[in-house]
Design a protein around this nucleic acid. Structure first.
Lengths: 286, 286
DNA sequence: GCCGTCCGTCCAATGTTTGTATAAGGTTGC
DNA sequence: GCAACCTTATACAAACATTGGACGGACGGC
């Protein structure tokens, strides 16, 4: 339990603003002490953090609030029919139900904006999926089923946006890399930002990066570094691309991105990272 | 939901122009806040981006608007090569041009029916792609780029069809299997036939097949057997599934399908194979 | 050159949204 | 009792949007 002043420190939002967000948008409804003091719990602090992040990015407060309330960071899916339980990716994976997973994804994307789904909902669901797999409650096939469905959905979103010209940006995983889901999400964000993203996918051999970069005249490449095994091949890619003349700027994302030297680390949130790249490209082009 | 300022940043179109496009051409009609502020959704932003791209390429705004409004959501991609040359997958892969490959695929699917594209055009293009790769005129990255784009396109087609109930059919590659393109094409055909296809994707471990089959009560599984290395894991899957009670009928497709024992071989052409399965299921259910 | 059309920008008056400031008073814990 | 903390309610200003008309550069036909 946190008092308003602590929450203000924790979130970087002034106390007055916290109160006004509550009154105007109902973003959280903290419990009250006997004397009427607000008492926030951890979930509410997390929601307020998300709200603060959105507002910081220029989303109007009213819309940010509606987005967060609508998605609830875990969309309650009232799937027609069944027992009214709240379904999520893990449930859909367990049941191997194409209709259900389709509904879960459609609802998640309908309840909120693309950016919020990709930044908030998707990572948390993938994390739960990974935990369920590690915990043995999900088979590889079930995990495949779910991540293939998510990737397909994202691919469809990627394809929805007609590719545009402009400075090309390579997107891929280093040799040996798998786990394409967030990479696809990132590519979709990039293309939605109007960036000419060239999606190379998983497991791109070392030598190909520089060959492709010079072929299309790319000056920027984005590399996903997720597993420990990805670090060394990724470092090799960075070294190779940096040695080119003119050099190719490499940006790295993923859990292990901080282990890579000579490349700029991407922002935590996918949409932020994509927006930053788009901004830099526009600035560079201007 | 996006406010006008965000949309302006997102699309690179000034706020005044966004309003004037709306007023003069009705290109989008955003919802309004209680106070009358515009609130754009994702689709509208996508439309505006397409509009901006067209205008940027020199299309007069009035025409661009009519094109976008008239043709539903089919912005015609300004193909780089307007010289009338017939482009193909290999050229698009060589150039690593997202716009071109998008156009190639859109043209292919527009020029004839889905079945014809998947049965005739796609295999021959993939064959040419493979030959170019083996001949060294295409790098792995270029091959990835093209097959990822095709897979995405097919995935979007798969997602277009809402999944239906009915007897489930498992679709996947055995342990170690890659090359998902034709598998995805097959899954898309199946779903278009109204079959409840459960797409497991590549590299599904041996033990998972029977686990998944009993989980969802599948009586039919489709297995792709492409490479020589896939034969032995595929045979193991067939043996395992056949041993279940009740047994799961396995159908095998792909270049090396004739090396598998105890499973029915699928027809040569993907659409034929999918139609046959759909027919059998209907007959079995009826 | 002249005219008409197209299209992005600018303007001004008005209204909305949002964070902050203020006043008056209650709660908490030492 | 007292200082620090919190409450509600009202007020306010800066930032943001709205409408509709007017303006001027670009382009094409005559």
């Amino acid at each position: 339990m946190y008092a308003v002043k602590q929450v203000s420190t924790l979130t970087g939002v002034s106390e007055a603003t916290l109160r006004v967000w509550e009154r105007r948008y109902g973003i959280v409804q903290p419990a009250r002490s006997p004397g009427g003091y607000r008492q926030y719990d951890d979930d509410q602090v997390a929601t307020l953090r998300a709200m603060a992040a959105l507002v910081h990015d220029g989303v109007p407060a009213s819309i940010a609030a509606r987005t967060l309330l609508g998605s609830d960071v875990r969309p309650r899916v009232a799937t027609a029919g069944t027992d009214g339980a709240s379904f999520d990716l893990v449930s859909a994976a367990t049941l191997l139900d194409p209709g259900l997973i389709h509904a879960v994804l459609a609802d998640a994307f309908a309840a909120s904006t693309f950016d919020v789904v990709v930044d908030c909902w998707l990572p948390s669901e993938l994390k739960r999926l990974g935990e369920a797999w590690e915990g043995g409650s999900l088979t590889v096939a079930q995990e495949h089923f779910a991540s293939a469905a998510v990737t397909r959905h994202l691919a469809a979103r990627f394809e929805d946006v007609p590719p545009q010209g402009g400075a090309p940006v390579l997107v891929g995983l280093p040799q040996g890399g798998r786990h394409e889901v967030m990479l696809m999400a990132f590519a979709a964000c990039l293309r939605r930002e109007g960036v000419n993203a060239i999606y190379l996918g998983a497991d791109v051999p070392l030598g190909d990066w520089s060959m492709v970069a010079s072929e299309v005249g790319a000056r920027v490449a984005v590399l996903g570094v997720h597993l420990d095994a990805d670090v060394s091949p990724a470092q090799a890619v960075v070294d190779e691309l940096s040695a080119l003349r003119p050099p190719v700027t490499v940006r790295v994302g993923g859990r292990n991105r901080h282990l890579i030297r000579g490349a700029r680390q991407l922002e935590d949130r996918v949409s932020q990272a994509a927006a930053a790249i788009a901004r830099d490209l526009r600035a560079g082009a201007a």
